[in-house]
Each structure stands twice: as structure tokens, then as C-alpha cells.
Amino acid sequence: MDDKKKDIKMRVNEGLDQGTVLFNVPFPKDLQKLDEMAPIIIKQPYQIDYIHSYGQDSPFFAGLANKVFLGTKCTKCGKVFPTPRKSCAVCGSPCEWLEMPKEARLHSFTVCHFGSESFLKETPYILALIEFDGADTLFLGRLVGVDPLKPSLDWIGMKLKMKFRRLSQFSPTDVYFLPAD
């Protein structure tokens, strides 16, 4: 009986770091005035680890860890995708792996002075669309080795070489680009 009484204790939200105990919340005697009340705003933290599988795209990341840049090629129409995809965007047929050339060119770029929260500390950083000889589409990567504070349209077409991060993080940024010359 005594144990059951203990259970009556309010045990709501103990596992959540949410809300704050507020004192003196104004409360009118006249209930008609409740609609004039200022909104109560609370903080609700939310954090999560996602378990993400690269699935059929995994060989690309294994390639980067071994200093090999893999793209795919459609087995039917022959389109070459440097951002690999095992199903062709043009005709829907299966694609097979192939190694991309080591040299590339800059197709377009921007300098990010702000970014999503996770990237704010890296600003200013350069996002670049990379083109390869013999490929039909592009690859999104990071460009280094140019001054982010002096962007120029003349950069477009620039020959680039690729570098691989020594300690692989199994991210597309395991490869990055810099001017070839």
C-alpha cells in the first residue's frame, strides 16, 4: 500500500531537459482576459544520431579511402555519372562502376560566407561543381588553393587536380580539389 502511494508522485518528462519552471506567470481573475495573455514559449532540445548506410553507393566511399575516384556508366545508353548512381537518370537502366580521370575542370562555384549550422565554423568555404572529360554530369566538391575573398568568373574552366584526405571520414569530402598549376 505504501509503495503504491509513492507512485502517485508526478513522474512526467523527467528524462527530458525541457521547459523551465516559471514563477509569477500573470493570470487574470477575469477569464475573459485570457486571450490577451502573452504566449508562453519553452525550449525543447532534440538531438539524434542517424545510422546512415551508403548502400549500393558504398563502393564510391571505399574508393575515396583508397585514393580512387569512382563514377558510374550506364550499361545501355553509356552516360557517365561522376556523382555515382547505379540507376541511369536518363534511361533507367543499371549502371556499372568505372574510375574517373584524375584531372578535372571547374564548372561553377560559390564562396559561402554563411552556411548551415554545422558548417558555419568553416566559412568562408568554396563549393564547386566539377566537370570531367568524358562525363555527362558533374560532381559537387570543395575547392581549396584559391583566395575565397577574391572570387572571379575567370576561375571557371580552371584545370583542377584532386586530393584525397589521408584519414578517411567516409564523406564525399574525402576528395577535394585544387588548381592543377
Binding site: 546512415h52 551508403y54 553507393d57 556523382t83 564548372h107 561553377s108 562555384f109 560559390t110 559561402c112 554563411f114 552556411g115 548551415s116 554545422s118 558548417f119 568553416e122 568555404y125 563549393l127 564547386a128 561543381l129 559537387l140 566538391g141 570543395r142 568568373l153 571557371i156 564523406s171 564525399p172 569530402t173
Partner: peptide, 23 residues
């Protein structure tokens, strides 16, 4: 898998598109 981890930021994506438009 391929875009967001590189520096996912929509303003950056749109900027790359218009830089190519400018070129």
C-alpha cells in the same frame, strides 16, 4: 549522401547556378 556533407546550404547551391548563368 553526396550534397549535404560537402557544405549543404541552399544559398550556396543557388549561387553556383547563377555563377554559371553569369558565365
Amino acid at each position: 549522401s553526396f550534397d549535404y556533407p560537402v557544405g549543404g546550404f541552399y544559398s550556396g547551391y543557388y549561387a553556383m547556378m547563377v555563377v554559371r548563368h553569369m558565365k
